Amino acid sequence: MNWIASLPMYNVTPALAADWRAFLADVLHEAAPLTRIVETHEPLPAFWRRTDLLISQTCGYPLMQGLRESVQLVATPEFDAPGCAGPDYSSVIVTRADGPVHSLEASRGLRVAFNQSDSNSGMNALRHAVAPLSRDGTFFGEMIATGSHVGSLTALAEDRADIAAIDCVTMAFVRDGLPQLAQAVREVAWTQASPGLPLIASKGVDTSIVEALRVALTHALRTDPARTKRLRLKGFSTLSLADYARIEQLESDALACGYARLA
């Protein structure tokens, strides 16, 4: 098999994207040197299901919404970022820095920005936080899909939205690389924690290669300590699908409140 690999999820700036690509190259050099690093031009749900996928990164929500039938878990990064604890992460709920919103409840009837409907950090965790405040299945006045967390932050900064939930790792990278954008928003609340974005492989990848990838991921942390610090990486955990069931529980809790979608 001619394997491919890509880490598409935390490329907040071009410099960060270059660091992730270099980190991945070091991992593959040790574990699978013939693997080709590619750009993900096709929609991510299709890319993640490719049978020639050696390693990539996905979100826990699509993983539990059907992707798990096509992939296996490799590892979950542990990040040095506010809102992270081991392999768990949270979303920081933010508003415009000079806006009037000072609590989640105060955003009732206002404009919510979210990156996409299959995001755990931008939609599912926020839905869970809002559900107890909802009335007859509604809470917000307008929903704005932005396509990315940076897009949601930009919508807040430009007064096109009033509130959004941002993956805390992304928010840390924005503070590092896009400080002006970070300063345009302020914290309102935090969502409940859940397992972070996992590294995955096609189910066709042999378990011996998966084990080699796990070893290589840890070794790559030591290859370039300055890069590891820029990537805010602390280590990797090996989780199971049972661990990721906590993401399904966030959805179940919201449904129990009669709040099936951001509305």
Score class of each variant (00 low, 15 high):
Lys203Tyr: 03
Val150Asn: 00
Thr154Pro: 00
Gly177Cys: 01
Thr191Asn: 11
Val169Ala: 06
Ala220Trp: 08
Val188His: 11
Val210Ile: 04
Phe173Cys: 10
Asp224Pro: 00
Val210Tyr: 02
Ile163Ser: 01
Cys168Trp: 04
Ala193Leu: 09
Cys168Val: 07
Ala157Thr: 15
Ala226Asn: 06
Glu187Asp: 15
Leu178Asn: 12
Ala164Trp: 14
Thr228Phe: 01
Val185Ser: 11
Glu187Lys: 14
Leu199Gly: 02
Ala216Ser: 07
Glu158Val: 10
Arg230Trp: 02
Pro195His: 07
His219Pro: 02
Ser208Lys: 05
Ala226Ile: 15
Ser152Leu: 04
Asp162Gly: 11
Ala193Lys: 13
Arg160Glu: 01
Asp167Glu: 08
Gln183Asn: 10
Leu239Trp: 08
Gln192Glu: 13
Glu158Trp: 06
Gly151His: 11
Asp159His: 15
Ala216Met: 07
Phe173Arg: 11
Arg175Gly: 05
Leu233Ala: 05
Glu211Asn: 03
Asp159Pro: 09
Ile163His: 06
Val150His: 03
Gly204Thr: 02
Ala184Trp: 12
Asp206Trp: 01
Ile209Trp: 00
Gln192Arg: 13
Leu181Tyr: 15
Thr238Arg: 08
Glu211Trp: 04
Ala164Ser: 15
Thr223Trp: 02
Pro198Val: 09
Ala193His: 06
Asp224Lys: 05
Ala184Ser: 10
Thr218Pro: 01
Ala189Met: 12
Ala161Gln: 15
Gln180Ala: 15
Ser148Met: 03
Asp162Glu: 04
Arg186Val: 02
Thr191Glu: 09
Arg230Pro: 06
Gly204Trp: 01
Ile166Gln: 11
Asp206Arg: 07
Ile209Met: 02
Val185Met: 11
